[in-house]
Design a protein around this nucleic acid. Structure first.
Lengths: 156, 156
DNA sequence: TAAGATTGAGCAATCAATCTTC
DNA sequence: GAAGATTGATTGCTCAATCTTA
């Protein structure tokens, strides 16, 4: 044993797993940064836009509905809604049928923000995913879909 | 105008852009959750493991080196190193050649942690990316690579 | 007891500002 | 003035605990 290292980098072949992993990781980090700057400077963040868009479509919702839809922890939803409420984009009203629950809905400002950020989102998606042709887009959906199915299995 | 909504969901065709976008987004959210639980319960988080592995390989490094390598903001690195130092996994020593800088290196405990988490990381990658065959892995690297190049352009 | 919501503590990241040294 | 590092304030996410109502 010439090296005091427990894992010698030489022993790890640069497998193609590494490449897949780092490509996907890089993509997310970059996409996150780019889209977030793009959207935040022009209105609300991507995370907030997702929530607003969902509330626009699905009407008044409870906190747990949002947590289920997006796979968030309860804390995440409370905090996100706190922020949106602070900025006057959503409202929490008592649920008439269940005194534990609150119904979350958009204010007029919230509807405007949702519409504006949806436009930006579409523009961004076109700029980004437009570099792939239709066949490539179908293929990437298929491949990432396989990974997602596997992950769902690992998550159990 | 029957609807008071500014953007009518009906007007947005469910384009395949949406599918690409949501597949990639889902992948990241799930992967992040799964790998983080997997690694944190058995030692250090994925984010920390990446740093440790890099420091193992590249020897003593400065804060800016890490920021450049991973594309992190300076704050991110300082905070990450703070945490690792608090847990006794890294050490900050003054750089003899530049009194502004510090050289970050692993402690013996840090080397152990790096080796342990590398093992878990390999196991995880195999479990996940093993669902794709070699051709599919090459293809996904190519496609995501195109997206990354585009993102790099958008980020300028 | 369980479900809906909130709160506390912590991690990983951002931007913007500051302090020291080059 | 610019580079290396740190700090303050904020966002988005996690888990675990708590409180109220069903």
């Amino acid at each position: 044993m010439a090296s005091p290292l427990i894992v010698d980098p030489q022993d790890i072949p640069p497998s193609d797993y590494e490449q897949v992993s780092s490509a996907l990781r890089d993509f997310y980090a970059r996409a996150h940064r780019v889209v977030d700057r793009m959207m935040t400077t022009r209105g609300v963040s991507f995370a907030r836009a997702k929530l607003l868009m969902h509330i626009v479509r699905e009407g008044p919702l409870r906190s747990t509905d949002l947590a289920d839809t997006f796979g968030y922890a309860p804390r995440t939803v409370t905090e996100a809604i706190d922020g949106l409420e602070r900025d006057g984009l959503v409202r929490r009203d008592p649920d008439p049928d269940d005194r534990r629950a609150k119904r979350i809905s958009l204010t007029p400002d919230g509807e405007k923000a949702a519409a504006a950020s949806e436009a930006i989102r579409l523009e961004y998606m076109q700029a980004l995913f437009g570099v792939l042709d239709a066949g490539e887009r179908a293929e990437i959906v298929r491949l990432v879909g396989k990974l997602n199915d596997r992950l769902a299995g690992l998550e159990l």
